[in-house]
């Protein structure tokens, strides 16, 4: 897969500054102009529930923060996995973590839907090389 094939990206992160950084960096590297911003995992799930049948609305890529209050990134994935079969389009999921905590890495590897765990600060170069491996 190449970057030009990426239609839309969903950002799920409770931290406003980090969402700002990710949005900016995606724009600078001309990823896509279609960005769906969610400030909680719950909001992301609601979006998926509302748009599960619409191929045009669903994102190609999710950048998912690991540590969030109320519902963390891993909990989000459990819910998403539950509705996976009903989705018109399966998203490619990259998790973002501020640590390279061994236990988080291991957990991410055990979740089938996760393509890769990326370390914050978000690096578009790392994302580009991860996408090209798909």
């Amino acid at each position: 897969m190449t970057v030009s094939e990426v239609g839309s990206v969903m950002l799920i992160d409770d931290n406003l500054t980090d969402r700002f950084i990710h949005k900016k960096l995606l724009a600078i590297h001309e990823f896509t102009s279609e960005i769906i911003e969610c400030e909680s995992a719950r909001e992301g799930l609601e979006f998926f529930k509302a748009n599960k049948e619409s191929k045009d609305q669903l994102p190609d890529i999710i950048l998912l923060d690991v540590l969030m209050p109320e519902m963390n990134g891993f909990d989000f994935l459990i819910h998403l996995e539950g509705m996976e079969d009903e989705l018109a389009k399966k998203p490619i999921i990259f998790m973002l973590s501020s640590t390279d905590d061994e236990s988080d890495l291991r957990k991410a590897r055990s979740v089938r839907m996760v393509n890769k765990m990326l370390r914050k600060p978000f690096s578009p170069e790392a994302l580009i090389s991860a996408i090209s491996e798909l």
């Binding site: 950084i21 501020s98 600060p121």
Partner: peptide, 22 residues
């Protein structure tokens, strides 16, 4: 420490990356 201490550092580094472009 690994989450709360490192998260703002990561944000700062991210902001600097953006700033260097802007």
């Amino acid at each position: 420490a690994s989450h709360d201490l490192r998260a703002p550092i990561a944000s700062t580094l991210g902001l600097l990356r953006v700033a260097k472009h802007d």
